[in-house]
């Protein structure tokens, strides 16, 4: 989508990587590149083998669908044991604009917002 936007707006820009909050072992940041099965296996390993009480699955933009899918798949594997609660947020992203055809202009930056989802997957018997 951003691709199309850039073509219509004709503003060449370069995206900076999304801010990366400090993460602990049970924070899972879902992306669109990694194999879905691998991500699922990683979550299972964390829950089963390493005995994490809860996982926080984060998805940003295009990866929201995947994050939801991942959480649901996890729950499906153990419907009684695992519970899900989701929350959403907005993440501010930065683009570097590249002024065309001159170096007199200061290269500006542009902020845009993107939605994110944070799903807490936790064990039921905890309570």
């Amino acid at each position: 989508m951003a691709e199309q936007m850039s073509h219509t707006e004709r503003v060449p820009h370069r995206r900076r990587p999304a801010p990366r909050p400090p993460r602990s072992a049970n924070d899972i940041y879902v992306n669109t590149k990694t194999d879905f099965r691998a991500q699922l296996a990683r979550c299972r390993r964390l829950l089963v083998a390493e005995g994490q009480k809860e996982l926080r699955v984060h998805g940003l933009g295009l990866a929201i669908g995947r994050a939801i899918n991942l959480a649901l798949q996890l729950q499906l594997s153990a419907p009684d044991a695992l519970l899900i609660s989701a929350s959403t947020s907005t993440v501010e992203l930065t683009d570097d604009l590249e002024p065309e055809g001159g170096e007199d202009a200061e290269p500006g930056t542009r902020n845009r917002n993107n939605s994110a989802i944070h799903i807490r997957v936790y064990r039921a018997q905890e309570e």
Binding site: R16, P17, P19, R20, P21, P22, T94, D96, P107, T109
Partner: peptide
């Protein structure tokens, strides 16, 4: 800042 890439190059 989480990574040097976060600030202008």
């Amino acid at each position: 800042i989480a990574s040097p890439a976060q600030i202008p190059s």
